Amino acid sequence: MFNIVSYVIFLMVSSYITIDVGRRCFQAGKVYLEYLIHDSDMCLTINRILLGCYYLLSLGYIAVNLAFWDRVSSLEEVIAVTAIRIGYIALILCVLHFMNIFTLYFLRNKLTLK
């Protein structure tokens, strides 16, 4: 019973975080990509590809994460395990976001040096 409660809480919170962060990065990323690339059609295409890859990777990790869940037998464990798993998701999303920003920044610098 406790496992099902922790699964539902984890899926709801982590899916909401993933979708909200993806939407916000998609909106804010338009300006950043146009600054870097100067081609609005290419920026929109790259932004959509990044969003799709982000969703696939993040939601896939969330789904796989459920397979490695330990048995939860009390309300305290529900809170602890769910908080730790959601924290991992938040850290991974942060790392993915900054990897994308640094990659685009370094690609832009490489293109402007030519």
Results as ranks from 00 to 15, higher is better:
Arg23Asp: 12
Val31Gly: 02
Phe10Cys: 02
Tyr61Pro: 05
Phe2Cys: 08
Ala28Val: 00
Leu113Asp: 04
Ile46Arg: 14
Ser14Pro: 02
Ile46His: 00
Tyr16Thr: 15
Ile62Gln: 05
Leu36Ala: 03
Phe26Met: 01
Leu36Thr: 06
Leu113Trp: 01
Gly60Leu: 12
Ile37Ala: 03
Thr112Trp: 00
Arg24Glu: 10
Val81Phe: 03
Ile4Pro: 02
Lys30Val: 05
Ile19Val: 14
Leu93Ile: 00
Ser74His: 07
Leu57Gly: 15
Leu33Ala: 03
Ala67Met: 15
Asn100Glu: 07
Lys114Glu: 02
Phe26Gly: 09
Met99Pro: 05
Ile79Tyr: 04
Lys114Gly: 00
Arg85His: 05
Cys43Arg: 09
His38Thr: 10
Val78Trp: 04
Val64Lys: 13
Val8Cys: 11
Tyr88Ile: 09
Phe26Thr: 02
Cys53Leu: 14
Ile4Thr: 14
Ala28Cys: 05
Ile89Asp: 13
Leu75His: 08
Glu76Met: 04
Tyr54Phe: 15
Val64Thr: 08
Phe10Gly: 06
Asp39Lys: 08
Leu66Phe: 06
Val31Lys: 06
Arg85Leu: 06
Asn3Asp: 06
Cys25Gln: 04
Met42Pro: 10
Gly52Thr: 06
Arg85Gln: 12
Ala63Met: 14
Val81Glu: 04
Val78Gly: 00
Thr112Asp: 12
Phe102Glu: 06
Leu91Tyr: 04
Val8Ser: 07
Cys43Pro: 06
Ser73Lys: 13
His97Asn: 10
Lys30Phe: 05
Ile89Arg: 13
Cys94Tyr: 12
Gly87Cys: 11
Thr103Phe: 04
Ala83Arg: 11
His38Glu: 05
Met99His: 10
Phe106Ala: 11
Thr45Gln: 11
Cys43Trp: 07
Gly60Cys: 07
Leu96Val: 01
Val78Ala: 02
Val21His: 11
Leu59Asn: 06
Thr45Arg: 15
Ile92Phe: 13
Asp41Thr: 15
Thr18Ile: 03
Cys25Ser: 14
Ile62Ser: 09
Cys25Thr: 12
Leu56Trp: 08
Ile92Met: 12
Tyr88Ser: 10
Phe26Gln: 01
Phe26Val: 05
Asn109Lys: 09
Gln27Lys: 03
Val95Ser: 09
Ile92Asn: 13
Gln27Asn: 06
Met12His: 08
Ile101Asp: 04
Gly60Thr: 09
Leu11Thr: 09
Lys30Asp: 02
Leu36Gln: 04
Ile49Met: 12
